[in-house]
Nucleic acid binder design. Structure first.
Lengths: 214, 214
DNA sequence: CCTTTGACTTTTTAAACAAAAAAGTCAGAT
DNA sequence: ATCTGACTTTTTTGTTTAAAAAGTCAAAGG
């Protein structure tokens, strides 16, 4: 009985395609990338791509999920190394920022407009938000237990903080010179995010009464 | 010598047109309102409209500026009645909220998309932002002088806070069931704004070091 | 089998043109 | 000085056609 040594290793092939797609997506965005081109890049026929990925959306979703995974791993690893809530949150803000910078690039051509890309990015964003608020809730609760932070409902605060970050990001990106952000713009954005975070965290440190839910 | 008693009182006429335009704009938005319709509403020919207002943009700008003026007056009046920074800021947040709710209505059809309306609303938003940050800077400085709030640069804090409010608003509106917000959604939005404000102000109350400008 | 592909069909996007609607102008009436 | 009908110009909308890209599949090759 012989074992087949050289299986074509489907996983590898998939990753290969993924990488090519990732490159194109990062360079030109969803709409400006064709399946044909990706196939050509790796010397493969378009039909073969469809053997591995059922459609374009699915392929690009896979690309994006891949990036996400990286992000999640990085965050959790970094958080585990730290001890106090303050630093954890600030670290999350920083890492999150780099992820979004990458995504801004991905959707380079036409970000705001609601083309095909929208549902894709919406889904992506929702996933990130869910993950982010989970982590944040954990961190906030940790801060509460250690007596540093004070509030009623950690989940509520996490959602608020997450929206606040995303809101600031949107505002700042909108103000930008359009398509691609310069170093200066990036520096400014990260400064704004850090400042807001500092104030927010500080605001949770001492007695404070939020209005009750209505 | 006889005095002409019935002059047509041009100022009145202008206001008359303004009001009609305002109604249409509020009801259908910029693109879905034609000059023809406005003229018809007040039993006037379209050409006459052009006698008073050079073009459509100018007319609608006038409408919007009118609304703005109301807002500015209200804010300043209310601020003058109050004494401490906390309350002033919260009041500003509340009044600002009602203004934007009105505007949301104005741009009912297609808010995010960048059609003709965009430059109009951009200009409007910039004016409000300028006014708002001026007021905020004054208030923050007052808070600093009275020793309640602590920070380096009031203007910087004002800009940050203004962006933060606007960011939260955008995020929440985006999440909405689309076109027209329900009472529940409105309540939620105002709660989020209040909470964020409370935390933010509280975060400025005690020692805190922002990262230096880079 | 599992993978690959050429040749095909279907769907989407883009270009070009025509028609309709709205914006904007103006000479002449009141 | 104010107003309007009749006009021109510009924008929007709709239609048609062609091209490009998405997506399918039967058959071929290892």
């Amino acid at each position: 009985m012989e074992t087949v040594v050289i299986t074509t290793e489907p996983e590898r092939k998939v990753d290969f395609i993924l990488k090519a797609a990732q490159k194109r997506l990062g360079l030109y965005g969803y709409e400006k990338t064709t399946m044909q081109e990706i196939a050509a890049d790796i010397g493969m026929s378009k039909a073969s791509l469809y053997y591995y990925y059922p459609d374009k959306d699915y392929l690009f979703k896979a690309v994006i999920e891949n990036e996400q995974k990286e992000f999640f791993i990085q965050i959790e690893k970094r958080i585990a190394e730290l001890t106090d809530a303050d630093t954890m949150i600030m670290e999350l803000v920083e890492i999150r920022h780099t992820l979004f910078r990458k995504f801004l690039n991905l959707s380079k051509f036409r970000l705001n407009e609601d083309h095909k890309v929208k549902p894709l990015f919406t889904e992506l964003y929702n996933r990130i938000r869910e993950f982010e608020t989970d982590i944040l809730t954990t961190i906030f609760n940790k801060g509460k237990e250690s007596g540093i932070l004070q509030f009623e409902d950690a989940k509520e605060i996490a959602l608020l903080f997450s929206d606040l970050l995303q809101g600031l990001r949107i505002i700042e990106v909108k103000r930008m010179s359009r398509l691609e952000m310069t170093e200066a713009e990036n520096d400014h954005l990260i400064k704004v995010l850090r400042d807001a975070t500092t104030i927010f965290i500080n605001g949770l440190k001492y007695n404070m009464l939020l209005q009750p839910k209505n």
